[in-house]
């Protein structure tokens, strides 16, 4: 309602143009292609780190650009990343007690 008028103008001010969004989507598509290629081509020891890094890049790009987090107020980032890092932290710790990582 009233509170939103500020955010409306804010988003159009800082969001990307249509071309910009398409460009991001093309990059995402390219990375996905690279990911799928690991299924056909042997990457050797790079396999696991490469996949994880590509996953994180895609994740961050969607969050930052499509979800506007990069242009938005820091409070939103705080709320979201608190949950994300808490999840990564506790679940990795729990899996570690099952000797999952080694």
């Amino acid at each position: 309602m009233n509170t939103t008028s500020a955010t409306d103008s804010h988003a159009t001010e800082h969001g990307l143009s249509t071309i910009g969004y398409v460009r991001i989507a093309l990059i995402l598509a390219a990375i996905t292609g690279l990911e799928v290629s690991t299924y056909y081509v042997d990457f050797g020891r790079l396999f696991l780190p490469a996949l994880l890094i590509m996953m994180v890049i895609k994740f961050v790009m969607v969050v930052s650009y499509f979800m506007h987090l990069k242009f938005d107020n820091k409070v939103f980032s705080w709320l979201f990343y608190t949950g994300l890092f808490l999840a990564v932290g506790v679940y990795c710790a729990a899996l570690a007690t099952f000797k999952f990582f080694g």
Binding site: L86, G89, V90, A93, T97, K99
Partner: peptide
């Protein structure tokens, strides 16, 4: 958030 496993000391966590 970092203390939950103290409920599980008797479960053989290592």
């Amino acid at each position: 958030w970092g203390v939950w496993a103290h409920h599980m000391f008797a479960s053989g966590l290592g």
